[in-house]
């Protein structure tokens, strides 16, 4: 499961795609996302996924995107099954499942190439309140820490004889209580210590904090922005003219 979830985790890579301003990467991912929603035939989806995979290859993240798709495979099968059972037909069931995978791979392209720091900068640029951005950043920052906490608590409870994998579904759910309680307590204690450290480093002392880095779009970013917008608009118009909605 951890290996599969790596399809959404950022990894620092040097590539022409990663060199782009994060806002341009977000724009490209959003374009793919919208086109995936608009696509009306399986061939259109196949073309879209092909384009996403080509960009993933340029971003040297093909394997990670593949992991995201594999991770989402179960959900895609579920979507296929539900649509097929509801009598929408085989082709529509495949279309909806494939569209879901296209959406997943387009979001994955953005997340595997964008560091949490860049995400923070984008959120600030979009005008999110500082406290909201900081809460988001802190939540993401502490995911590995809380995962490590959970793993240590599980090991400690296992060494005391607690068996997680035995019993009925209800029993297994109950078995999670001895993990969740210390995990929540640890997190509450941690949040208190974080608050102290934030206060000690002047958090909130000014309404307009400065930043070590600024996002600056270069000609390279503008060129990618214009090119991607042109291609996405052309693809959108093609779909709209040949398969008008409604």
């Amino acid at each position: 499961m951890y290996w599969l979830s790596g399809g959404f985790v950022f990894k620092r890579v040097v590539s022409p795609f990663n060199r782009l301003d994060p806002r341009v990467r977000l724009l490209i991912a959003a374009e793919f996302f919208l086109l995936s929603l608009m696509a009306q035939t399986i061939w259109q989806i196949v073309l879209l996924v092909g384009a996403i995979l080509a960009i993933s290859a340029v971003a040297r993240s093909l394997r990670r995107i593949g992991r995201a798709v594999a991770f989402s495979g179960v959900f895609a099968l579920f979507i296929f099954g539900v649509n097929f059972v509801l009598g929408l037909g085989l082709l529509h069931a495949i279309l909806y499942a494939a569209r879901f995978l296209a959406i997943i791979s387009s979001t994955s392209v953005f997340f595997v190439t964008t560091s949490p720091d860049e995400l923070e900068q984008i959120m600030k640029w979009m005008g999110f309140p500082r406290d909201v951005v900081f809460a988001f950043v802190t939540a993401v920052r502490f995911i590995p820490v809380v995962m490590l906490d959970a793993s240590q608590i599980m090991d400690a409870q296992k060494s005391r004889g607690l068996e997680f994998e035995k019993g009925s579904l209800l029993k297994r759910a109950k078995n999670l209580v001895p993990i969740l309680v210390p995990l929540v307590v640890n997190s509450v204690v941690r949040s208190g210590e974080l608050a102290e450290a934030m206060e000690s480093r002047a958090y909130g002392s000014t309404p307009r904090p400065t930043s070590l880095y600024a996002m600056r779009a270069t000609w390279y970013d503008w060129a990618a922005c214009v090119l991607s917008l042109a291609l996405a608009t052309a693809a959108g118009l093609y779909i709209y003219h040949h398969f008008p909605f409604g």
Binding site: V145, R208, L212
Partner: peptide, 22 residues
Amino acid sequence: ENQIFMFSVERDVAFGLQNLSV
């Protein structure tokens, strides 16, 4: 662990300075 807020060392070192609008 509980006083490193940012995702890279240099950005965390800058955290307090950002808050002081340096």
